[in-house]
Design a protein around this nucleic acid. Structure first.
Lengths: 123, 123
DNA sequence: CTGTATCCACAGTGATACTG
DNA sequence: CAGTATCACTGTGGATACAG
């Protein structure tokens, strides 16, 4: 999720503007929120906290706000008491599930190789 | 590349150890290094710097060391003068190109939607 | 229940200069 | 050429407490 939006993140060799960096989409928790919502059902703020390592409300708010701003999910506040707010993926958010699953499959398949390589490197 | 190795990054709801976080593979530049080397040819330190926004040597060194440690690439130092060091992907590194391409394809296809969503959000 | 308000620690990133 | 050494900055992420 922290991948630069520029798919290759390469620059024109003639470009001299070092500040011309690609924009970034997503933070540490974006992928996990996506997976929480991937079955299509809308979930509430507190429902999202539990599977996400009891992420603090501040960080969850920031994550959800950023995803809403980027068009990945919708925020629906029902005018009730006590308040009820529900989050659900947009079509754009769902379109990210494919690449995300590919990454997760890779992690499942090759995760142990990474761990073993790290241990071998220590020696 | 900053995805947690745990594919879902969900925790056992009964787990009370908040520090039990999944390990992470890769940093800001890992995907770009991967793409620099994806055609299979080994490249030298200074060859890698140019397309990577003239990344500073310190950061490139750290990135390459981490990738070597994780088994994603090999570092070959030829005993010459001036020194020559070449980096090439391992099989594990090449296996990451698939998921990476999927992510890049997504960015190519949906990048403008993100930008538009951000602009619309400002209004 | 769904967030804000503060405050803070630190990893990550980077600029610059120097070395074998 | 291929790095290391320092120093500094910044934003993300997090703990805790409080509010509508």
């Amino acid at each position: 999720m922290s991948e630069p939006l520029d798919p290759a993140m390469f620059r024109d060799p003639d470009c001299t503007d070092r500040a011309a960096q690609p924009i970034r989409v997503g933070g540490k928790w974006t992928a996990s929120v996506l997976r929480c919502l991937q079955d299509g059902t809308a979930r509430r703020f507190s429902e999202l906290r539990v599977p996400l390592y009891w992420i603090t409300p501040k960080v969850l708010t920031e994550t959800l706000r950023a995803m809403e701003r980027d068009g990945l999910l919708t925020r629906t506040a029902h005018d009730e008491n006590p308040p009820r707010v529900e989050y659900a993926l947009t079509a754009l958010g769902r379109s990210l599930l494919g690449p995300l699953d590919a990454a997760c499959d890779w992690a499942r398949t090759h995760g142990t190789e990474i761990v073993e390589a790290r241990e071998a490197y220590g020696a």
